[in-house]
Every structure is written in structure tokens, then in C-alpha cells.
Design a protein around this nucleic acid. Structure first.
Length: 256
DNA sequence: ATGGTCGTGTGACGA
């Protein structure tokens, strides 16, 4: 027996509902984490018809994350702790059967340097603190989502063109490394060390057609969950569909 | 190529 957990930045749930339903029907994940809902609208009934209950955090026009699940979950947190003034809808932490599922939409941070980049780095510091707490308490967890971080050179088509970008700047990568240094595993890299495996392709300049992508959507696993990991793969098909999101799903399977 | 393309909500702004 295994549990299948997917993550997908859908770039508007209103614009992408048909794609999400198509993905759920074909892939049948136990859990789907979504990012960039981009609005207050949420089609809960459409997901319920396919057997999924849902939890979500929304705001007008921007951000927004949701967790769909076949089994009921308990909501633990709907904001990342550490800044009471931060009301952006980017974090949802739930619990199910002793496993903590955390859905994040990490700030993009461009243009960098600047206020937006500072917010990204502070947000990452807060995430490091939260996961450090869960590690200290030995809580098994899987963090999925759009991290807006390109971990290494081999995770982007042309590293030189990304060096000053908030997704690849050394400050961002250093904090991602700090996450891994908590004993956390980048699930995609357990069984695959190859370059040119991407989860995002820009809408502009024919990036998809030329495979000029980046790997910025990730699953980070605590040691207990990493030990249970069976596979982690990128499903590139949805990026090829008509009126696609600029991201494609990442799918994790763990022993149940 | 200081552009290119999407989505929101109907202005610019974010990515």
C-alpha cells in the first residue's frame, strides 16, 4: 500500500478548474496541494464530487493555497508563524494519520535586491524556524509547493541568465540549504540526479517549446517520511494542455 | 529583444 501526494501551482483555480479535475481523475492522488489560487472563488463542490474534501487559504487576486484530500484532515495552521503583520495566503499546515502535510507558496522575491526580496528571505527564516520546531518534536512531515527556489545549476536551463534572479541568488539558495541541513530531504533528488528536470516553464519566448525550464516546485521530507519515499516524479503532461498553467505537477509516493 | 505572456479584475501589478 502507498500514499500518493501531488503538488501543483495552478496559476488561478478559476482558470484551471478543468485541468485540475482532469488531473485528479487520471492520476487519482490521495492528496493534492495547490498554490496560486489567485482569488476568493473556490469550487469546493466540484472536488467533493470526485471524492475530495478540501481546506484552503484565500485572498483577493493573489496567492492562495489549498489541500485536497480523500481522507479528512485537521487544520493545524493557516499562516506561517513569526510575523503577525503578514496576512498573505501562502501557508497551510494540516495533519492526517500522524503525518503533517504542509502546503507552501514561497514568495517569488523579484525584483532583487529590494523589499520583495527581503520579504522572501524573512519568510524563509520563518519556515526554517517552523520546521526546526517540528524536527525537534520528531513530527513526520512533507512540505510541498512552489518554493520559488532553483536549488542547483542543473535545475535550470541557463544558470548564467538566472544568477541575479531572486529564485537563484546565493542568499535564497543558502536558506534552502539551511532547510536541508535540518535533516530534510529534497524528495525528487532521492532517485534522480539528472539535469533538465523542470516543473516550470515561462509563458514567454517559447520557453516550453524549447524546454527552457526551471525546477522550483519541491517536496521536502522529514527523515521518517524520506525513509518511506517510493518515488517522486514530474508529470509534464499538464504543461502541454491547452491554456496550461506555467507549472506542472510533482508527484510523491510514500509507503502507507 | 529594457520585450516577450498570462491572470486578476477593469488599474496596474505580479510572476
Amino acid at each position: 500500500m502507498s500514499t500518493k501526494i501531488a503538488t501543483w501551482n495552478v496559476n488561478s483555480i478559476k482558470a484551471r478548474l478543468d485541468h485540475v479535475l482532469r488531473f485528479l481523475e487520471s492520476e487519482k492522488p490521495d492528496v493534492l496541494m495547490m498554490q496560486e489560487l489567485k482569488g476568493l472563488e473556490f469550487p469546493e463542490e466540484a472536488f467533493a464530487k470526485l471524492g475530495y474534501q478540501s481546506q484552503n487559504v484565500r485572498q483577493k487576486a493573489y496567492n492562495g493555497v489549498a489541500i485536497l484530500s480523500r481522507k479528512p484532515v485537521n487544520v493545524i495552521l493557516d499562516r506561517l508563524p513569526g510575523d503577525d503583520g503578514d496576512d498573505q495566503a501562502r501557508y497551510l499546515e494540516v495533519e492526517q494519520g500522524g503525518l503533517r502535510l504542509i502546503d507552501i507558496y514561497l514568495p517569488n522575491g523579484n525584483p532583487a535586491p529590494g523589499e520583495k526580496f527581503d520579504y522572501k528571505l524573512r519568510w524563509m527564516d520563518r519556515l526554517i524556524l517552523r520546521l526546526k520546531e517540528l524536527r525537534a518534536d520528531n513530527v513526520p512531515f512533507a512540505v510541498g509547493g512552489d518554493f520559488n527556489i532553483i536549488p542547483e545549476n542543473k535545475d535550470c536551463y541557463d544558470p548564467k541568465s538566472w544568477v541575479n534572479d531572486a529564485l537563484f541568488r546565493i542568499e535564497s539558495r543558502r536558506k534552502f540549504r539551511s532547510l536541508l541541513n535540518l535533516g530534510i530531504t529534497d524528495a525528487f533528488r532521492i532517485y534522480n540526479s539528472q539535469p533538465d528536470n523542470y516543473t516550470y516553464w515561462d509563458y514567454q519566448a517559447g520557453a516550453w517549446q524549447k524546454n527552457h525550464g526551471i525546477r522550483i516546485d519541491h517536496f521536502l521530507l522529514s527523515p521518517e517520511v524520506a525513509d518511506r519515499a517510493l518515488s517522486c516524479r514530474i508529470d509534464i503532461q499538464p504543461r502541454s494542455w491547452d491554456k496550461a498553467s506555467d507549472h506542472t505537477p510533482l508527484i510523491l509516493e510514500i509507503a502507507a
